[in-house]
């Protein structure tokens, strides 16, 4: 659905590239995450992919359309949710969605249905300018779903939302994935990427460092550890034991046999730890 080959982009039209030689393909129904810190080039890549930024060097096709000369029909197939809310403050939530749906040439979803989806139906007739930041973000998010996109671009979809609402948004994304929607998701939140993405790309300083599934990354770069808290001679002890090292395996066996375990869980490497390991930089 999305093909990117040798993509470069420079805001100053020189060799100071915000995105350097990006290459990737996203299959139909896949959730592809772009994981990187602020200023890594995530939004720039999305900007080029959605036609907001001109393509300077490289090739990009979206649903078979060459982004260099995108046809208007292409925009019936895509949905874009922006990191910064950009709805009309003077219009109500309903008016915002109702105006937007009329710009598409395909069957669109009813504004009321979408507002219910994110719990904004009770403020449908309230001006968006009177909304909180989180409410505006939700309105921007559902607006991107109005044309039933088959390719959905999500820029930091849960940033700035409280955990309950962020969880609702993640559920919506999962449901759209089940319907076969291809999703390009940019985030600096490793948990969101881990939970939602089939594959992720680590991007830093405009360069993609690696692309793989979260599971493969954890297997490749993570350590298999078990953390256990147990009583030994009435003293509570906490130990991290490898599931690979024979010595640690024997020690774990002894602890289990003794039966004085309080807490025990496996400890996998987080994507953030892997990101730091691969790029040498933190996800901030």
């Amino acid at each position: 659905m999305i093909k990117v080959k040798g993509l470069y982009h420079s805001y100053s039209n020189d060799d100071k590239y915000a995105v350097k030689d990006a290459n990737f393909e996203i299959k139909k129904g896949e959730v592809f995450g772009f994981l990187g810190p602020s200023g890594a080039g995530k939004s720039t890549t999305q900007g080029v992919l959605t036609g907001l930024l001109p393509i300077q060097k490289g090739e990009v096709t979206i649903a078979g359309y060459d982004i260099r000369n995108p046809k208007k029909e292409m925009f019936n197939l895509i949905g874009v949710s922006f990191e910064q809310s950009n709805v009309y403050d003077k219009l109500t939530a309903y008016e915002n969605l109702n105006f937007y749906r009329k710009l598409f040439d395909v069957k669109t979803r009813k504004p009321k249905e979408l507002l219910e989806l994110v719990g904004l139906d009770h403020v449908a007739n309230k001006k968006a300018g009177e909304f909180s930041k989180g409410m505006k973000h939700r309105l921007t998010f559902i607006r991107s779903m109005i044309n039933n996109p088959i390719i959905w671009f999500l820029d930091e979809p849960t940033t700035g939302l409280d955990p309950a609402i962020a969880s609702e948004i993640k559920e919506i994304i999962k449901k759209e994935k089940e319907k076969g929607v291809t999703i390009f998701l940019t985030t600096h939140n490793m948990y969101v990427a881990d939970e939602l993405c089939d594959r992720i790309a680590f991007i830093i300083d405009g360069e993609i460092k690696l692309i793989d599934s979260p599971r493969n990354l954890k297997l490749k770069y993570g350590k298999k550890l078990v953390e256990v808290e147990h009583f030994e001679n009435d003293i509570l002890k906490k130990e991290s034991l490898s599931l690979i090292e024979p010595k640690d395996k024997a020690r774990l066996n002894d602890i289990i046999t003794a039966g004085n375990i309080e807490i025990m869980h496996t400890k996998e490497a987080t994507l953030e730890e892997i990101f730091i390991k691969v790029t040498g930089k933190e996800l901030k």
Partner: peptide
């Protein structure tokens, strides 16, 4: 306000 960006990604 960025509203122009939202319009640009429509037909």
């Amino acid at each position: 306000r960025g509203t122009i960006r939202a319009l640009t990604v429509t037909p």
